[in-house]
Amino acid sequence: MRDITVEKITDSVKKLCMDATRFIGDDVLSSLKVAQEGEKWPIAKDILADLITNYEIAASENLPMCQDTGMVYCEVEIGQEVHIVGGTLEKAINDGVALGYTEGYLRKSVVSDPIERINTKNNTPAVITYKIVEGENLKITVAPKGFGSENMSQLKMLKPSDGLEGVKEFVLKVVKEAGPNPCPPIVVGVGIGGTFDRVALLAKQAAIRNVDSFNSKPYYEKLERELLESVNALGIGPQGFGGKTTALKVNIEIFPTHIAGLPVAVNINCHAARHKSVVL
């Protein structure tokens, strides 16, 4: 057994919230630079250059890269030898979110009730998923998710006969319908398989995966590349003003499913594809 205190967890989550909203990952930044060089459409090239500048300013001045500092999606992997001391894990995480968003001058965008809509004033609660794994470590990932892109996400229970073509069609339909709204260039997170709830989670995990990573199965790596090409052939471009760079990456996550089903979910992430992790 290994003890980890709630104070340590709260402190780490606070820092993750601040870092994730200020410092874009090197994966996104390099991908934007490559895209900027490759763009031939002038307005698209300019927009990508401005986005790169924005990320540089945010990092050097410790400013939030985007005003929508999101709702926190938090993924926790708990080693089964870990013992949390001093309180509950969930409260420790939410305390960290509250501190990070208040002390870090981040926008509080969470309302306590979807119909009543009263702001909780500290951006809590986070949406937390837990996974029990081997070992005595605790891994926490914080991914603040903006809703310009979250609102453009869709889920569909396809028929098995729709097959691969059905999946491709659905992904392209979602990106097309989203058009300029999710601040392209986007990251397209695709979940395939599982159940109604699981496929949405897969899409989220895909949406926050690094843009320089690929699915470990060659078949899906190939599909990621192919879908990226199709998405970028739509011509939507940065901000929807036209151009090659509609998406930086298509990421796919899969799970076994039922004989009668083919669930597909597309979770759109924007270029501000923020996520930071820590292992305690």
Binding site: L51, N54, I57, A58, P64, P180, C183, Q239, F241
Partner: peptide, 13 residues
């Protein structure tokens, strides 16, 4: 008018 979505630190200046 469209401002660049996500270029928030730049625009804030």
């Amino acid at each position: 008018f469209g401002a660049i979505g996500g270029a928030a630190a730049l625009i804030g200046k």
